[in-house]
Design a protein around this nucleic acid. Structure first.
Lengths: 345, 345
DNA sequence: TTGTATGCGTTATCAC
DNA sequence: GTGATAACGCATACAA
């Protein structure tokens, strides 16, 4: 503390306070505060003197102090609990971020994007969230039994989760129906006459991954040959390659593939063409997300559109509504996932 | 305010304070505070009683209040002043963010990523920055005469800019030498025997864009035919396509192209092959950034490596050093930009 | 219309 | 070791 004071006083000039302004303008702190908050009942002389004084002493309000008394900060956090690198790779996260920022920005809230990966990050972030520096929080990818989730629920911080982690009870969430999306696109693949359809199922440890597998299974009438499902860890290009190699080795005559994300599908596509299979001639491939990967593929991918931007926006709206005192929608908010049919199947 | 109190008291339970803990444990606030901050000189009985009380009343510290007295928040902002969409598209920004977050996370600071686009965003952000909620700030892409820049300089907020906006004087910055990078890669293109070399020069309104053009010009001995330079607005794929079409129309016999970013080069490449030119057979193409675009191209791009992650890390380190009381490095910090020679030239 | 007094939740400086 | 008490910078109910 004394160090900080020293720095404050000597290296930088001390920040002017309301008191300094009041002294300079020859009025009381209360009057200055009223001017600052744009209240009526201030004489024009007082206002003029105060404006001049503010400019002279270079006053700028201290939000931390204001927070303490108003109990609000004007900022809403967007928490991304993912391996750091995913933040760069996953186009969904970026779109969610954009949608949330648009909505918050319109409501004149400052969005602060917070990312956490390691245990230490998570603990620090949980501390930060509990600090009262944020009026609310949007949580992009919570895990089960996540310290972040428990802090949010314990503090009853106005929040909206994206996706539906199993252990939230009181908080709002917005999600897509992964089961339905996967079911529909798989059905369309079946409808094109494919007989031997496999799936590259990534991220089975997440609800999204597990749900997409469930949808695939449903579309195929409930029972699928397990050897037609290649489980991989991440929604990534390279895991898509690995999964496709596995499938191709087990079933050289495979003629349809549902990849649980577009990145996975892109990897599968490249492995297929490298193996001499034509797409969609020999094998039909479909993905999930409708991310930039889908259009970058050759042929462009048929896929399930994930409304990432709208998810962000809806989550932001949900938090804003809670801030207005409205109750949380029980059961969550679900967004549509239309099928986008292109050339890969 | 009264609304907030109401919400606090009724809808949610009131947050327990140090006082509540002190009452519950039968000690004074001072002692509680000492326990909280891990100081010695606390009897083990007191400590035990306090720990129990904390658990019982569900105490969680209020950072806003702590900030007020300690004058620090443990958070550092990362400001991105760009069109929102660029945040998704520009791989450099994401890498910078990752590098910065890694360094800050190691130092146990919470990074808060703040993005601004519109005038209103910028004003709100400037207000936020001046609020004392952040101990320091990394600024990814400042403009000239940017309210954000002026707030930072006025408040003498510990800061590090990435790149070197013209109107910063007291703040630290980390940058790459765009002139040198462009000069070197152009020289290598010349050395491969290309005779008619053009440039697609994006973002000439930024120092980076202008510097890359300057480097190109230097490598060509100072005078270049202006018709061999196609100026475009953004470092984007589509602007790269447009620039290449322009160049090809003016000089059908062009045999070398320096694109001022990899995304631009990717656009150029596709236009060239669509026009029946082989790369690198007929035309050699080089880019700038060494982003994921470079490897995605066919053939893979020869380019200038931009150490984006390291830029973020260096900027974070610069801010952290200032927080330790060290003075700002005059003249900035420059990072190397090695050439990565692949197959496109 | 304005000034005064009090409180927001913490940490820090003292005496004890 | 511990407990008062004074900051921190601001907003606001109330008195004037």
């Amino acid at each position: 503390m004394s160090t900080m004071r020293f720095v404050d006083r000597v290296l930088r000039r001390r920040r002017a306070t309301v008191n300094d302004v009041a002294l300079e303008a020859g009025v009381s702190r209360g009057t200055v505060s009223r001017v600052l908050n744009g209240e009526r009942y201030v004489s024009s002389e007082a206002r003029a003197a105060i404006d001049a004084a503010i400019a002279k002493v270079g006053y700028v309000p201290n939000t931390a102090a204001r927070n303490l008394v108003t109990q609000r900060s004007g900022a809403i956090g967007l928490v991304v609990h993912e391996p750091h690198s995913l933040f760069v790779e996953d186009p969904n996260i970026a779109s969610i971020l954009l949608g949330a920022n648009a909505a918050l920005s319109e409501a004149d809230y400052q969005m602060a994007c917070l990312i956490a990966d390691t245990r230490r990050d998570v603990d620090r972030l949980a501390r930060y969230l509990s600090g009262g520096l944020l009026d609310g929080v949007i949580i992009v990818s919570a895990r089960t039994s996540d310290p972040i989730t428990s802090v949010v629920e314990k503090l009853q911080l106005p929040a909206a989760f994206i996706g539906h982690p199993v252990d939230i009870s009181t908080s709002a969430y917005v999600a897509i129906d992964n089961v339905a999306g996967a079911r529909e696109i798989t059905s369309r693949l079946v409808a094109t006459g494919r007989k031997k359809i496999g799936m590259i199922a990534a991220a089975l440890d997440r609800d999204s991954g597990a749900d997409r597998l469930a949808g695939f299974t449903e579309a195929l009438g409930g029972d699928v040959d397990p050897s037609l499902v290649a489980g991989v860890r991440l929604y990534s290009y390279s895991d898509g390659q690995a999964g496709m190699r596995e499938l191709l080795e087990r079933h050289p005559d495979i003629d349809g593939v549902f990849a649980s994300s577009d990145a996975v599908a892109a990897g599968a596509l490249d492995v297929l063409t490298a193996a001499g299979r034509s797409v969609p001639g020999d094998v039909g491939v479909v993905g999930f997300d409708d991310s930039s990967w889908a259009l970058r593929c050759d042929p462009p991918l048929s896929t399930v559109h994930q409304p990432a931007t709208e998810l962000g926006r809806a989550a932001a709206d949900a938090v804003l509504r809670q801030l207005q005192g409205e109750p949380v929608e029980p059961g969550g908010i679900f967004l549509d996932t239309p099928i986008v049919w292109r050339a890969s199947a």
